[in-house]
Simulated assay, not measured.
Amino acid sequence: MFVFLLLYLGSGTKQDCRYGSNCRQLSDPTHCDRFKHPTQTTSAFGAAASSDDRLSNKNFDTSSSSHIHTKHGDDMQKAYSIGAAIALESLSQQDQISIKTMREDAIIIVPGTFDHIDRVLSKLNLKYTTVQQYEVINYPFRTYQTVYINCASSFPKEGAHRLRELVEKGLNIITTDWALKNVLQVAFSDFVQDSGKSTRDEVVGIEVADPNHPFVKGFVSAAKHAEPQWWLETASHPIHIVNKEKVKVLIRSQALYDKYQSDAVIVTFDCGQGNVTHMISHFYLQRSETPNSRHKMGAQQYAEDIKASDQITKLITKEGQDLNYAQIQSSSTSAQFIYNLLSNRLNSTKQSTS
């Protein structure tokens, strides 16, 4: 994900890789130089859950893959708390009310192997329901819902085709990375497909391709003083756009195009009455870079750059003294993107309970 979504890990000793033995970068020496991997572990989402085990963020803490509280985890929690406050403040009063009063089941998460949007939503205090992959085929989805499908090594084809039927009736889905091949290429191949290429573990510069689109509202001002970056994990799948008339590129990268002949970082398209949004790489990441001197500055500088309110400035002074510019930029724009998607959806379907 771009540096907006990257969270600083610091230097020194290796961090535990949050993907454990399920990490798809075990053969990448650059990644393994930064992170430690256990010889054997069990994925938090590896075992299939029964319907009675379906979890929401009200009774399940997914903020960490272990019970060890690292400085990285503490910093991430602080950054997302502050980032959420910054993003919420930028929303209209109507959008704020819509989010605060949304239905309990407005957000559905389908767990994957490599991405964990649930951890981000938990830190943004957003309610959600978890539906396992095997349940997608028969789960009673509602067309007002938004379904986040995490990057995973596999996905049931029947589930992908059912999602296509539901999207055409009004469902919105948001997918990440390998879901391009396992979900979109299976059921939405007339819009986008896997390019057949794989990225390295690298960071590329990005730019907003459609600054007027409501999904990326606020991104231009956030990037005004520091060039945004996007982290590509090892074996991320570049996007091949089939229907160039209907698929809109929201975020693009010239460097990505130069290397893989595909510049799309985030794309979105309408399908029937619903919508699909896809991004290369993940919502929830474990690597950060501070590529220039501004990113290394303190969080207060970011507040000054975006002309934050006195309330936000005081919050950063109190809670974010140990955070840097890149962390707050990353968390606030990550929260902004999620809130933009959510508020746009809630307002269009009028599903607020207000």
Rank of each mutant, 00 (worst) to 15 (best):
A106N: 03
A48Q: 06
Y148R: 10
D28F: 06
H31D: 05
S348F: 05
T62Q: 05
G320R: 01
S66P: 11
N22R: 12
S352I: 12
F215W: 14
M279L: 15
N324S: 07
N172I: 09
A79D: 01
S189L: 14
N22Y: 13
E207I: 11
K350W: 03
Y139C: 04
S334V: 06
G159H: 02
Y134Q: 14
H37G: 00
K246V: 15
Q336P: 05
S90G: 05
N292M: 08
K246C: 14
H213P: 13
T41V: 01
L166F: 02
D52E: 11
L126M: 03
D95H: 08
Q25H: 12
K244G: 10
K58T: 09
K100W: 04
F4S: 14
T70H: 03
R252W: 07
T130L: 11
F141A: 01
S332L: 03
I241F: 02
Y19S: 09
Q261V: 11
S21M: 00
K14Y: 07
S11D: 09
T290F: 10
V220S: 15
N172E: 10
V167M: 01
A152L: 02
G12R: 02
C23E: 00
S98W: 05
R164N: 00
V242M: 00
G205C: 07
N172A: 09
F2E: 14
L9F: 05
L124Q: 00
S90R: 08
I68T: 08
L55R: 10
D258N: 13
E135G: 03
E89V: 01
N138Q: 14
T39L: 13
L341G: 12
G272C: 00
H37V: 04
V249H: 10
V208Y: 00
M102G: 05
H240V: 12
D74K: 07
T290V: 15
R294E: 15
D322I: 10
I206C: 10
L341I: 13
V147P: 03
I137C: 07
S153W: 08
V186R: 07
L163M: 01
A299P: 07
A223C: 09
T199N: 03
N138H: 12
H295T: 07
C32G: 04
I251P: 10
A264H: 07
